[in-house]
Write a protein that binds this DNA or RNA. Structure first.
Lengths: 129, 129
DNA sequence: CCTTTACTCTACCCTAAGGGGAAAGTGTAT
DNA sequence: ATACACTTTCCCCTTAGGGTAGAGTAAAGG
């Protein structure tokens, strides 16, 4: 099938599918005379797999790893779990950073009257030495 | 003072300071004969201000807004608080997304034995239609 | 005065993951 | 033959700078 159908079936945009072909993630045959990419059902399955992994916030590089484990029938579940746990710990660290940030900002906001006068503790904090 | 000292005093890199000059955020005079940028104490204060705002996760555009409020002695604290509250709500929405993601991933990981066998619920989930 | 060393300049390419659009070719239906 | 849908490659754009090259400038030492 052509790229339009492959994109529709995998719920990706054509741009995204073409990008994955360019970086060698899912590289379909290309018709010699027309140059059109020709996707197999298996390739569409890979596209779907990547789409799901991307929704789980895996980077393209991580998707590449996961995809090769997906294709490797001799993989161990240990390898897959390792990548997943790493991603969880990345998320945890981002969560902590964001929580800290939120606390600081909300402390600043709570101290600001938010009225029509110019004096503002938020500006003061940002101006502090 | 030259850019090196300005960068040191503001705890920014030279690249960053030069970038801010290029985008017109903090644009010092430039010596005509040498081309060297010449920073005043006031400009260094602005750089520090921006550095702090950036640490609070404000984008460059938001910094531009904050900086103009910082310079405007007729500002109202209402305006500053508004930007801050918007940033907090952006952070909240990111926090929610990340928490959801973490739950899903940790559910997947907890169902995966993580042993030497190839069958893996994580891969299964990513392969689901 | 000359040289070394430190500092600065502009200009270019790079990041992640595509999005937008142009210009040109291809496929199909009427 | 023509209209319309689909696809191709190519190029620029996004954030907030980082890295490097080549060249010019400033200050210190001999």
């Amino acid at each position: 099938m052509n790229i339009g159908k492959a994109a529709k079936l995998s719920n990706l945009t054509i741009k995204t599918v073409r990008y994955y072909a360019n970086i060698g993630l899912v590289k379909p045959e290309q018709n010699i005379s027309s140059g059109y990419r020709e996707y197999t059902d298996e390739e569409v399955a890979k596209l779907k797999f990547i789409g799901k992994a991307r929704k789980f916030d895996f980077s393209i590089d991580e998707c590449k790893e996961l995809l090769s484990l997906y294709e490797d029938k001799n993989r161990t579940s240990k390898e897959v779990k390792k990548i997943t746990l790493e991603k969880i710990s990345q998320i945890d660290s981002k969560l902590n950073d964001l929580k800290d940030l939120r606390n600081e900002l909300s402390f600043l906001a709570s101290n600001c009257h938010g009225d029509d006068k110019p004096n503002c503790p938020i500006i003061d904090e940002l101006s502090k030495n």
